[in-house]
C-alpha cells in the first residue's frame, strides 16, 4: 500500500520524502485548502521546487484543493487548479463537484482524487464521481468499519485511500458546521477549523482553560494531556453530566488493521497532519514506513510511542472497529 504523507511547509515536505513517503500532499497559502492556517502552506514557487524534489526521488505530489468554492469567487479555485497542473502535480485532491467539473473539462489528463471532504461513502456516490468526472481515487470518510470497506471496494471503479494515522474529525466530514457555529469560519469554506484568530487560552488556578469564539470549551487539570480547541472535542454540561459529548481529545491509529485494510482492497494509507511540525512528519512517516514492512508482532513496538505525540496523548481506531450502535 502507498503511504500518503502531509506537508505544511517545504521543510516538512523534504522530511516526508526523505522518511519514505510514496506521495506527499500539500496546499497553497489560501482558502483553497482545508489547512489554511497562519504561516502554513506553499507559494507557487515553493510548490514547484517541492514537486521537483519529490520527482527526483520517485515521490509524487498531491495538491489539496479541498474546500468548497465561494459563489462569485470561483476564479481563486480555478486558478489554483490551473497552477497546480502547470507545476506538475501528480494528483489534485478535490471536494467540490463544480471544481471537479472544471478540472475534468479543462485538464482532462490530470489525475483527480476525491477528498474526504466530499463525504462520499457508498458505491453509488463514488461511482457517480468516477463516471462523471473521471476520478481515479477516493479518500474514504472516517465513518466506515474495515468490514464496510471490504464490502465497498469490489463495487467501486476507483482506488480507495483511507486515513491511517493522525487527527480525527467528528463523523460528518465536509458537512461539519461546529466551527462555523462558534466562529463563522469553517474548514469546508474557509479552510480553517476553530481558527487561531478565535482561540484563547487562559489559566484559572491550576487549570488551563481553552476558549473558542468567546465560548469556554474545555478545562484541563494541571497534568492532564490537552487537545485541540475544537468544539467537537469540547466538554459540555448535559443534564447531570459534564464530559465529552461528541468525542474525546484523541487521535486516529488504525495500524493494527493494516493487513485487513490491504486485504480489503485499500490502495493507500493517509497520514493526517499538515499543521504539524517537520519533526512530527519525519517521525510518523518513518515509523509507519517501517511498520508497513514489519510483521504484525513487530508493529506495536514501532508505533506505540507515537501515541505520546497525538492529541490527548491517546489513540483510537475509531469507526474502523466500531463497537457502538
Amino acid at each position: 500500500m502507498e503511504l500518503i504523507c502531509p506537508a505544511g511547509t517545504p521543510s516538512a515536505f523534504r522530511e516526508a520524502v526523505d522518511a519514505g513517503a510514496d506521495a506527499v500532499y500539500c496546499g497553497f497559502r489560501d482558502e483553497t485548502n482545508a489547512r489554511n492556517f497562519p504561516g502554513l502552506n506553499f507559494t507557487r514557487e515553493e510548490l514547484g521546487t517541492s514537486i521537483a524534489y519529490g520527482k527526483a526521488r520517485g515521490v509524487q505530489t498531491y495538491v489539496a484543493l479541498n474546500t468548497f468554492m465561494r459563489a462569485g469567487s470561483e476564479a481563486l479555485w480555478y486558478g489554483a487548479a490551473d497552477d497546480a497542473v502547470r507545476l506538475g502535480a501528480d494528483a489534485l485532491i478535490v471536494a467540490d463537484l463544480a471544481l471537479m467539473a472544471y478540472i475534468a473539462q479543462h485538464h482532462p489528463q490530470q489525475r483527480l482524487h476525491v477528498s474526504v471532504q466530499a463525504s462520499a461513502s457508498n458505491a453509488d456516490a463514488i461511482n457517480f464521481l468516477v463516471q462523471t468526472f473521471g476520478a481515479k481515487r477516493l479518500v474514504l470518510p472516517r465513518v466506515l468499519t474495515v468490514a464496510d470497506i471490504a464490502a465497498l471496494a469490489p463495487k467501486v471503479a476507483c482506488e480507495l485511500e483511507v486515513f491511517a494515522f493522525g487527527g480525527l474529525c467528528v463523523m460528518a466530514e465536509g458537512r461539519c458546521s461546529l466551527s462555523s457555529y462558534a466562529t463563522g469560519l469553517s474548514p469546508n469554506m474557509q479552510g480553517v477549523c476553530s481558527p487561531a484568530s478565535h482561540v484563547r487560552y487562559r489559566e484559572d488556578g491550576a487549570e488551563m482553560v481553552s476558549e473558542l469564539g468567546g465560548y469556554t470549551i474545555n478545562r484541563f487539570a494541571a497534568e492532564e494531556p490537552a487537545g485541540y480547541p475544537t468544539l467537537c472535542k469540547g466538554r459540555f454540561h448535559i443534564a447531570d453530566d459534564d464530559g465529552y459529548a461528541f468525542e474525546d481529545p484523541v487521535s486516529l491509529d488504525v495500524m493494527d488493521h493494516v493487513d485487513a485494510l490491504r486485504d480489503a482492497g485499500v490502495t493507500a494509507l493517509k497520514i493526517e497532519g499538515r499543521q504539524r511540525g517537520k519533526a512530527y512528519v519525519a517521525e510518523v512517516v518513518s515509523r509507519l514506513r517501517q511498520a508497513l514492512a514489519a510483521t504484525p508482532e513487530q508493529r506495536p513496538a514501532l508505533l506505540d510511542h507515537l501515541r505520546l505525540l497525538s492529541e490527548g496523548q491517546r489513540t483510537t481506531a475509531g469507526a474502523y472497529e466500531k463497537k457502538w450502535r
Partner: peptide
C-alpha cells in the same frame, strides 16, 4: 513538534494564537 509539546503540557501559550 509544538503541538505534541502542547498536548503533553510541556508548553504553555497565551495571547494572539494567530
Amino acid at each position: 513538534d509544538g503541538d505534541a509539546m502542547f498536548f503533553a503540557r510541556s508548553l504553555s501559550i497565551a495571547g494572539d494564537m494567530e
